[in-house]
Amino acid sequence: MWFDYSVIWAAIIAFAVLAYVVLDGFDLGVGILFPFFPERRDRDVMTNSIAPVWDGNETWLVLGGGGLMAVFPVAYATILPALYGPIIAMLLALIFRGVAFEFRWRTHATSRFWDRAFCLGSIVAAFTQGIAVGALVQGITVEDRAFAGGTWDWLSPFSLTTGVAVLVGYTLLGATWLNLKTSGDLQAKAHKLALWSCAAMFVLIGVISIWTPFIHEIYFERWFSWPTAFFSALVPALLLICGYALWHGLKTDKHLQPFLAALGLFLLSFTGLGISFYPYIVPGALTIQEASAPTESLTFLLVGAAVLIPTILAYTGYAYWVFRGKIDPEEGYH
């Protein structure tokens, strides 16, 4: 059957990962941008802009991980040992970054240290996530439904490049977010950083797009054979439109448009990845059907997901609405 529960679940997991990437992406981007804003006052505004929502954003990562275990246990059980190094590094980085939100307010003496932890944690988390994606694209050695490769398989020029690409991409999301949520000098600086990171992001998307089809013949086939060739032609065209919207939005000093366009860039890159992967979940090794849990597991969780994910989106949207608008730098002081 072409359209079965495992495909629906693959779509849901993909959605969770995408939601994580764009939501925590701008969070992490704000942290990555810390070195450009040495003033304590600016940094307070920056963290205040994400403080009410970062926790919810990171929950999508837990859904991605937990969901993968529930519905694609074999994929979970092969991908995680294969990407052991980057995943552990990412988790440790997220710890430093997560606690820094609260800890940086707790002392005068060490707030600098926690600012650094916040920044470095964000950088390492972004970079290792990019490495993980690149390593997955490159493929994982699977034998008898288990990871059968070596400790350093994930490390390659390609995965390092995707690591940098995700780092730059999150920087762009963070810069456009600050452009949206802040005002004055802070916004002006974020505006400039958004332009630069947008240009860098396009270069990297180009490099990776040219590189990918030569990594594995399955990508080459998917990209250049009908009917998927239609989509693989459409994606770059839409990317250019998004890029223009971003650039134009910045030039005409729009606040929301650049952020939305940056989200669009991620959505399209992610779609490109999806086109390349399908029908595999671990490229070249496990298809969606092969990796799927028994139907009873898929349906049991799907019933809940069908009701709960829209509900979650509704109240998450509400929380964003409550904290809408520019951050008032004076609000935190008296």
Partner: peptide
């Protein structure tokens, strides 16, 4: 995870 993910995971 591979063997029991179908029960613990959901």
């Amino acid at each position: 995870s591979e063997k029991a993910g179908s029960i613990i995971g959901p």
